[in-house]
Amino acid sequence: MSTSRRLTAGAFAGAVALVASACNTTATAEGADWQPTKAIEMIAPANTGGGWDTLARTSARVLEEADLIDRPMRVVNKPGAGGAIGWAYIANNAADPHKLFVTSPPILLVPLSGESDHDHTDFTPIARLATDAMVYMVAENSPFTSFEQVIDALLDDPTSLSVAGGSAPGSMDHVALAGAAHAAGVDAAQLNYVAFDGGGEATTALLGGHVDLAVSGVAETTGLIDGGKVRVLAVSSPEPRETLPDVPTLQQLGIDFTFDIWRGVMGPSGLTPEQVAYYEGMYAEMVETSQWQASVEQFGWVDDYLGSADFGAFLDEKREEFADILSQVGLR
């Protein structure tokens, strides 16, 4: 499966490079008429150790190990305001081709909640690299054995179950829950969503029986799932996860909703097509390397490459979808 994915990604990257060079009369056949001239700053808009930091450091390491980049790539942490501090930094460096940043759904959700001066349209999409899914889970001793039972209970009374998530209302965990509930016909604004400080605290509350259900990223909870402490009732990805073969997707359960924790790279606004093509080509090659594949497997991600233009379109589409969900729950 991963080979075919890789082939698709490769063919796709080639096509994008062609399009890029075709669109640009000054571009040479190789599309390599721009090269970085100094060290590249890769901004992780969060502290060390988090998801963004891991993506930034892993991709920088793979790029250097696989010799895909001539200049050093330095990971710089710009934590604060859920990413807004790092985004402001990039926005203040418009057209600087030596500054990139790692990104994921908060680039859409944080501006939608009005907590950032900049949104995704202020930046240049470079590439989407990988994705991860959300899981809906209960404790091992919970009376619920299927997601349908949970939905039935919520249809009866949306306030009857307390659901823990690791982030504030309007952020990823809440949107993944509200979107699924809304698609199943539940009044998402009525849900009893309890926000905890991080996925760890949310799962602890689930294990201790303090809440009925929890929503969390797959990677964060792998240990507990393997240890049999929690029962995963559904997964938010479009296709079943290799590591969770028995867990149905929402779509398999007849709930028309998917939620991906996609991860990608963006740059400042005002980059030239040559600069975008350079980075895009670089990441297209990176996702094919064995080092990247090993990291993807290790973190429980799924390869999901998209080039600059498609990533941009994808972001616009997701923004609309998230805006809809947030209006459903009354946060917009």
Binding site: N47, G50, T222, G223, D226, Q298
Partner: peptide, 17 residues
């Protein structure tokens, strides 16, 4: 939390197992 991130990168999955 930083330590947990480091453990995951080092391919050690902390948990009941």
């Amino acid at each position: 939390a930083i330590l947990l991130g480091a453990l995951l990168v080092l391919n050690v999955q902390p948990g009941p197992l």
